[in-house]
Design a protein around this nucleic acid. Structure first.
Lengths: 169, 169
DNA sequence: GTGGATGCAAAGACTTTGCAGCATC
DNA sequence: GATGCTGCAAAGTCTTTGCATCCAC
């Protein structure tokens, strides 16, 4: 098991170095904007979208254009430091990748909270499914939509049923 | 009425009736456009997007506007006859719902083929995951991206790795 | 100094909406 | 005949791109 965030000394150093090396390997430049963006990404709450990242950067005093946010996120995705994902919205969501761990998501339809989980038996099940269909898996994504423990009791489930069917996933 | 290979006598009758009843229950009208749309949906290859449905309708001689296509798809989704989903693209995909069966998807990154599968043990696994997190599930979606049996041998996997990381799911 | 990066604004893809005329019940 | 429906075009959202300028190397 890899070391977890709690024991880290230098928060983003590892990610910064990795990104810089990635850029260098492609003869790209590690600009101030890119540096600020990596820091912001690994300071955020793990899940974010392009717009909230853009706003977070503005609050920190930076003045990075939306275009650069998208362009840099694209690089981070290619570099493997960020994953792009659809969480049922019209717009893309992103998540900072810590280590190599794969996980999937529980998504609360009431408070929008995203809970991560990892199940080894899910990975095994995926293998079985793929074998059955002679499919070579490269990536998978399991999303469970519903109500988190905080919302389960206080939310009228029937009022959500329509939203469930509309979910874009 | 054209007969189908599935063994059904009256291909879309059931769906048409269900949609009509749904509309009636909301005091909405079963117009010619809506009729044509339901038929087209259940004649298509099960998976489609708004644009291909629109084009299919044009080919059949209809002249239904894009706006109506979107509006009617929305009704069909609310009615439960159609599911809206994201398959890693920027645009929404739809799938005609046959019966109540739930299934998940294998998505070939080379030929874009979508293979459906159902695994009872996946449903059981979902229950276990939810219990662990005190989460009340209303819907789930498992997507496995990779190469189908037709493409596995002929496709250079490394050329896909970048695409995998970019997938919007 | 050079090639890549940035910001801006414009364009793009996909989807939704306001409105006037039209069709269904 | 009233109410809801349609097509059209305009607007909206999220994202990408062309271009002149700017900056890291």
């Amino acid at each position: 098991m890899p070391s977890r965030a709690t024991g880290r000394k230098t928060p983003f150093a590892e990610e910064q170095v990795r990104f810089e090396a990635f850029l260098r390997s492609r003869k790209l430049k590690y600009t101030g904007e890119r540096k600020a963006l990596v820091q912001a990404v690994f300071q955020t709450d793990h899940h974010f979208d392009a717009d909230s990242l853009h706003m977070a950067l503005r609050k920190k005093g930076g003045d990075i254009s939306r275009a650069t946010v998208y362009r840099t996120l694209d690089l981070l995705v290619q570099c493997g430091l960020v994953r792009k994902q659809s969480l049922g919205d019209q717009h893309a969501h992103y998540e900072a990748v810590r280590g190599d761990e794969h996980h999937d998501h529980l998504i609360c339809l009431n408070c929008q909270k995203v809970i991560e989980f990892f199940r080894p038996d899910l990975e095994a099940l995926q293998d079985a499914i793929c074998e059955e269909h002679k499919f070579r898996a490269l990536h998978h994504s399991l999303q469970i939509f519903g109500l988190c423990s905080d919302c389960a009791d206080t939310t009228d489930e029937s009022s959500l049923l329509q939203r469930v069917s509309q979910i874009h996933t």
